[in-house]
Amino acid sequence: MKEEGKHKKAKKYGMVINLDECTGCGACMVACMAENNVPFREDESNKLDSIAWMRVYKLTNGKSYPDADICYLPRPCMHCEGDHGHSPCVSVCPATATDYSHETGIVSQIYTRCFGCRYCMGACPYHARYFNWWDPVWPEGTTKYLNPNVSPRMRGVVEKCSFCFHRYQLAMDKAYFEGRAELEEDEYQTSCTQACPAGAITFGDLNNPEHKVYQLAKPDNKHGGRPGNPNVFRLLERLGTNPKVYYISSREWVRRAGDNYLDNEDFAKNYRR
């Protein structure tokens, strides 16, 4: 057993989203809701309490007509690595309901441990966490479509994107059954990645140079996974949360929108440490 564990290289699952290709169609949001039994209510127009593990934000360049421009930015949980796994939310959870897995790089959320203090929501700089203020209600008949691989949550707990961790578990089960300890790149893909009609989302192991995510983001894994591709950025890079979600944009104003820069500040400086 010990021998086996030794040879298994740690994974660092992450995502690269190409904002040039993203059309803002929202398929990732619904693919996520359908996969993860996300509840819905009569009015979902208050976006602060509307639960969306994946949310597509609309960015504007702030210019006037006709120079105005918009860009969509899908935001799942960033699965921050922080400093050696000290993600902002993991550090504050008093119930160990959220944890950083050094094996996969995924930040978990264990609903049955969460008692709803919402410290993690305060700590998360990305608003990726949502609180169940109400018990979920599925209209008559609709519980039939609930996915047995993800447990429905109840009032009083926090939930967030899990990188479809149940898919990882299913893929691993299958691999073990077939006598393998490693997964192929396409064996474990999140629901949003699979659904995106524009093919804008790429998912895989950031530690594996063979994987597309690695080739797109060129992460500097010795320095928190800082992207090596000049068109790639991460949200709020300077907080040091070291997110595992990377964005590609050929437009500078979009890249600058990823963090709070002063007008005359050199954006590229962040990435030249």
Binding site: A27, M29, A34, P139, G141, P197
Partner: peptide, 22 residues
């Protein structure tokens, strides 16, 4: 046509199948 891609409406089809508006 779609080779694996799908739109929001297509993804929500089960809410139409099992939903309360039938």
């Amino acid at each position: 046509v779609n080779d694996g891609g799908i739109c929001v409406m297509g993804l929500s089809g089960l809410q139409l199948l099992y939903g309360p508006t039938r």
